[in-house]
Design a protein around this nucleic acid. Structure first.
Length: 377
RNA sequence: GGGGAGAUACCAAAGCGGUCAACUGGGGCAGACUGUAAAUCUGCUGGCGUACGCCUUCGGAGGUUCGAAUCCUUCUCUCCCCA
């Protein structure tokens, strides 16, 4: 079973500190989950992820793993944990986000979605049911429901229709989940997803629908897909007013350090985002003092540490000038160091948020940190 | 000693009478990135101006022409081949 214990709630706000227990270990919330789409957190070795970054749970992606290496290889390996030698929990996205991000290569129907593979153009059909089956083969500790993620500027009519499709899929996915069993002897949870675009009434009814499914945790999807930030915060608030307090809440795909702090303040427990790794690979460093573009000329002769306050050894071991040199020279070590740093920073951020919630100081710490973290330096 | 080729912006390299402030690469500078089709993509890169534009450029000097990076003369320098 997956359980969630709420330890502490910030006195002023809705921020929560808790513990999720899975058969592969505990997850202290709020938590950030590094994204490892195809069975690898890009550029980061497993032991670094475990010991240095201290990731408690990582993501995988059903669509990508299904295409390559494929269910067969993963099943023969004994599941994704065995395959990549990762012993802590894994959450897998269902491919729902690819319904959105590969919009040009897919066809939606009530039954499911037909994709054209981005790798070889081949046709594949995903349904709420077969996506559960594939995630059983992957063996993730938390499986995600198949959903449709409408774009941020979806009009009401589309958002409404899309939500009905998603809810139909949630019902079917949930039923199939209840009917099937793990393949490797470890419990797997299944999280449904709240959609509803930027419309409070849709979000509220979607949250109620999801709550009624009685899953072990719930997710908020369809945010940070082009809508204004304030609208995203409003949707999180509206949704969390309805979602049950005794289950973890997962905000999918978000976001910037400031986004995460604001969402924690509105009662979110779990996050994932490609930003620390992708933007890190592209030279953006997130620090407690603000955002650095390490490729900029101004760091050319700055021999100070990457981040003097950083929590990863790379922060003090390498200088900004050296890291800039690696990026400018297109050396592979540059993106690797940046990824390790950014992930360690994200994990530090949520860990500190947790401590501040428990200490009762979250609100004041947050308002100061949101400012620091968002500025460009 | 004889014969030939060439000098273009930071580098390489197109252009061979007007549509050239000059193709394209590289380099440089900056930007984007939110459940990863991304170790990717975009913009700028003579000066001044937001912009229409104006000014100074294609080895040096002179010339032809309404008009030259492009044609002619000459100087300087580089490279290749044969002895």
């Amino acid at each position: 079973m997956l359980s969630f214990n709420l330890l502490s709630t910030d006195v002023r706000g809705k921020a929560r500190a808790g513990v999720i227990r899975t058969e592969r270990g505990e997850i202290e919330t709020p938590i950030f989950m590094p994204v490892g789409t195809v069975g690898t957190v890009k550029g980061v070795l497993g032991p670094v992820l475990t010991d240095d970054i201290k990731a408690q749970i990582i993501l995988g992606n059903t669509y990508h793993l299904f295409l390559r290496p494929g269910n067969d290889v993963i099943q023969k390996a004994g599941g994704l944990h065995q395959f990549m030698n990762w012993k802590r929990p894994i959450l897998t996205d269902s491919g729902g986000f690819q319904v959105f991000s590969l919009a040009d290569n897919r066809k939606l129907s009530d039954e499911g979605v037909t994709f054209r593979s981005h790798i070889d153009g081949g046709k594949h059909f995903f349904s709420p049911e077969n996506v559960v089956d594939t995630q059983r083969i992957i063996g993730s500790d938390i499986m995600m429901a198949l959903d449709e993620c409408p774009p941020g500027d979806a009009d009401y009519q589309y958002a409404h229709k899309s939500l009905q499709l998603t809810q139909n899929w949630l019902k079917r996915g949930h039923a199939h989940f209840e009917k099937t069993k793990p393949l490797y002897g470890k419990h797997q949870a299944w999280f449904p997803i709240v959609q509803g675009a930027g419309y409070p009434d849709l979000r509220r009814s979607a949250a109620q629908f999801v709550t009624d499914l009685g899953a072990e945790g719930n997710a908020i999807g369809g945010l940070s897909v082009g809508e204004p930030t304030d609208l995203m915060y409003e949707m999180i608030e509206v949704t969390n007013e309805v979602l049950p307090e005794d289950k973890p809440r997962y905000l999918m795909g978000v976001g910037t350090p400031a986004n995460i702090l604001e969402a924690i303040d509105r009662g979110v427990d779990m996050f994932d985002c490609v930003m620390p790794t992708r933007n890190g690979r592209n030279g953006m460093l997130f620090t407690s003092e603000g955002i650095i573009n390490i490729k900029n000329k101004k760091w050319e002769n700055d021999y100070s540490p990457v981040d003097p306050n950083g929590t990863s050894w790379v922060d003090r071991y390498y200088s900004k000038a050296y890291l800039r040199h690696l990026f400018v020279s297109r050396e592979l070590l540059g993106p690797q160091i940046a990824s390790v740093h950014n992930l360690a920073f994200y994990l530090w951020l949520v860990k500190t948020a947790r401590e501040e919630i428990i200490a009762g100081n979250f609100a004041s710490w947050k308002s100061k940190m949101v400012q620091n973290v968002a500025q460009r330096i």
